[in-house]
C-alpha cells in the first residue's frame, strides 16, 4: 500500500529524517514509535505531502507520489490527522467533518449525511451541533479522526491521536481504531502510548535521530537493546539486563 524508500529530509544543516524506509501493508495497522524529536512527524509530513523529501521516494499503491501536493494525495486516498489538533474553530463539529466529506461528495446534503454517520461512529454523536472550539481535548482528537475518516481514505495516518487522553478515554478509542482497520482502511500511526501500540499494531518501526533503527512485531521491538538505548541512553540495555539478573 505505502512504501517509503530511503527518504531524507534536511532543514538547512539539520537532518530530520535520514535514509528512512518503511512499508505499510494493506489492511494492517503499522506503528511508528521513537523518542521525542526522532523525526516521526517529519516523516509523516513527507508521506502526506506537506513537505517534499530532499532525497528518496514515497510510493502509494505502486506510484511515486513524492512530488504531489497534499490535496492531490488526499484525493488518492491518504488522510492524516494533526498531532497538534487543527479544528476549524469557527464551525460546528458537523461542519468540520463535512469539509472532509465534501472530498467525495459534491452535494451538501450528501456530505452532511456522510459527516453525520462518521461523527456517530467515532462517538461524537451528541456533540455534532456544538462549536468545535467547545470540545475537550479528547473530543478534538476524535474530531481529527472523524474529519480524516470522512474523506474515505485508503490509508489513514494517525499522528498521536491518543496523546493527552486519560486511560479510560484511551480504552474507549482503541476499539474505534480497530473497527476502522476492520473495514479495510490501512493505518499508519505514530504513538507514544505503548498500551495502544502493543494492542493494535502488527508491525512497528522505531525511528531515532532520523533513522529507522528497528522493525518487527511490537513485542520483539520492545526487547531490542538498540531501542531501549534510544529511549533510555547508551548502556541502559546492559544495565537493565544486569539488574534483572541480580533481582
Amino acid at each position: 500500500m505505502l512504501e517509503v524508500q530511503n527518504a531524507t529530509k534536511r532543514f538547512g544543516g539539520l537532518v530530520a529524517v535520514n535514509q528512512a524506509s518503511l512499508k505499510a501493508a494493506a489492511g494492517a495497522i503499522t506503528g511508528l514509535i521513537g523518542p521525542n524529536g526522532a523525526g516521526k512527524t517529519t516523516l509523516f509530513t513527507l508521506i502526506s505531502g506537506f513537505e517534499k523529501p530532499s532525497e528518496g521516494r514515497v510510493l502509494f499503491e505502486g506510484q511515486d507520489i513524492s512530488r504531489d501536493e497534499p490535496h492531490v494525495r488526499a484525493r488518492r486516498g491518504i488522510a492524516r490527522t494533526f498531532q497538534i489538533v487543527q479544528p476549524f474553530a469557527g464551525l460546528s463539529v458537523l461542519e468540520n467533518i463535512a469539509v472532509g466529506a465534501h472530498l467525495r461528495h459534491a452535494k451538501r446534503s450528501d456530505a452532511m449525511a456522510r459527516a453525520e454517520r462518521v461523527g456517530q461512529r467515532v462517538g461524537l454523536g451528541p456533540e455534532l451541533e456544538k462549536s468545535a472550539s467547545s470540545l475537550t481535548v479528547a473530543g478534538r482528537k476524535r474530531l481529527e479522526l472523524a474529519r480524516a475518516l470522512a474523506t474515505e481514505p485508503k490509508l489513514l495516518l494517525l499522528d498521536e491521536v491518543l496523546a493527552g487522553l486519560n486511560p479510560s478515554e484511551i480504552r474507549d478509542i482503541i476499539p474505534v481504531i480497530r473497527a476502522i482497520r476492520d473495514e479495510g482502511v490501512t493505518i499508519l500511526m505514530i504513538e507514544h502510548v505503548m498500551q495502544a501500540v502493543m494492542n493494535l499494531c502488527e508491525q512497528v518501526y522505531v525511528l531515532a535521530q532520523g533513522r529507522i533503527i528497528a522493525e518487527g512485531p511490537p513485542a520483539d521491538v520492545c526487547d531490542d537493546p538498540k531501542v531501549i538505548e534510544a529511549y533510555l541512553g547508551a548502556g541502559a540495555a546492559e544495565r537493565l539486563k544486569r539488574e534483572k539478573i541480580h533481582a
Binding site: 502526506s48 506537506f50 501536493e69 497534499p70 490535496h71 488526499a74 484525493r75 488522510a79 492524516r80 494533526f82 487543527q86 479544528p87 476549524f88 474553530a89 469557527g90 464551525l91 461542519e95 463535512a98 469539509v99 472532509g100 465534501h102 472530498l103 459534491a106 452535494k107 451538501r108 456530505a111 474529519r147 480524516a148 470522512a150 474523506t151
Partner: peptide
C-alpha cells in the same frame, strides 16, 4: 450552501487542515 463555500470557509479557518482534507486551497 455549496461545496465551494464549505472549502472556502475551511481555508479561512485553517489552511493546513483544509489541505489535508483534499481542498485545493
Amino acid at each position: 450552501r455549496s461545496r465551494f463555500g464549505a472549502q472556502l470557509v475551511a481555508v479561512r479557518e485553517n489552511e493546513a487542515a483544509a489541505k489535508a482534507l483534499g481542498v485545493d486551497t
